[in-house]
Design a protein around this nucleic acid. Structure first.
Lengths: 155, 155
DNA sequence: CAGTATCCTGGACGATACTG
DNA sequence: CAGTATCGTCCAGGATACTG
């Protein structure tokens, strides 16, 4: 398989029985895997933003979800909230250093997406046309492969 | 914090009005952001696995979810399914090159998690002790900050 | 402007039973 | 062993209304 990594990191990606690593990933995903978090972070990566600005930029987000998302990010120390005691109130949100460091990870994810989008879309289309199932109804587990031998023993 | 990227990529992570990038990330997250996908991928990163093996290793996953997760991965071309026509049937799952390439991204995420876990946990604890709210009930938006000036004008 | 409070719905996920 | 089929639950998230 050889993998073709840039030669930078050690190598065996997530390999090894590092159950810990998988655990770490799940933790992060529990935080940023939701519908809005990365979109908000992305917007804040551009600079300080006020509540309304965010709601306008992050197309489609409701007040409720923007509030919840920002609260969670603040709680985790990824975002700082600054209130200016004016009338009406003015509130600004900005990424903390930790929050900013996360943008680099997101960049890595985005890069992977960009590089493999076509492959994935193709594969998906091929799968969907398999039986004629046009939608992502997810079915079709057939194909009695003839890979060499026929299994040696039990489990 | 300086972030410490290898010096490879340009720099401003997700910066720039690359709404596209945020979009890419969301796409991937829609696929791997669920409860089991990364755990299954992590297990498969160790090598070829059979259905039952996976169910045993990925602690807590139900048959239904394992099937669904594997189907989605197969549909996206991240996993290959091989059926050996024995009785009872024997089915093996393995990562495709694309799937394997994803493990490197997951590694990056895991690394970030490992590096910032303490900071996040601390911040979270601090937030929770803010009012006395012990649980992640997520509240408390108070604090009438006194950051220098008092805002110049409206919006 | 910047929120909070309610109500409601779809879909993710778990539990269980059955099949080739 | 490797699934499929069904049913039930829970909660993320949307819609809407009200407040300082």
């Amino acid at each position: 398989m050889s993998v073709r990594h840039t030669g930078v990191t050690t190598d065996p990606a997530i390999l090894r029985d590092d159950e810990q690593m998988a655990c770490d990933v799940r933790e992060v995903l529990d935080r940023i895997g939701d519908k809005w978090t990365v979109l908000v972070i992305n917007e804040l990566a551009h600079g300080v933003r006020r509540f309304r600005q965010l709601q306008r930029c992050v197309q489609g987000i409701s007040q409720r979800m923007l509030t919840l998302t920002l609260r969670r990010l603040e709680r985790d120390g990824l975002v700082v909230r600054t209130v200016y005691p004016t009338v009406p109130a003015r509130v600004e949100y900005a990424l903390t250093p930790t929050g900013h460091s996360l943008t680099f990870v997101l960049k890595a994810v985005a890069d992977w997406a960009a590089e493999h989008r076509h492959t994935v879309i193709e594969s998906r289309a091929h799968w969907d046309s398999g039986t004629g199932e046009p939608g992502p109804g997810l079915e079709r587990p057939r194909r009695t492969g003839q890979p060499g031998r026929a299994a040696s023993a039990v489990d």
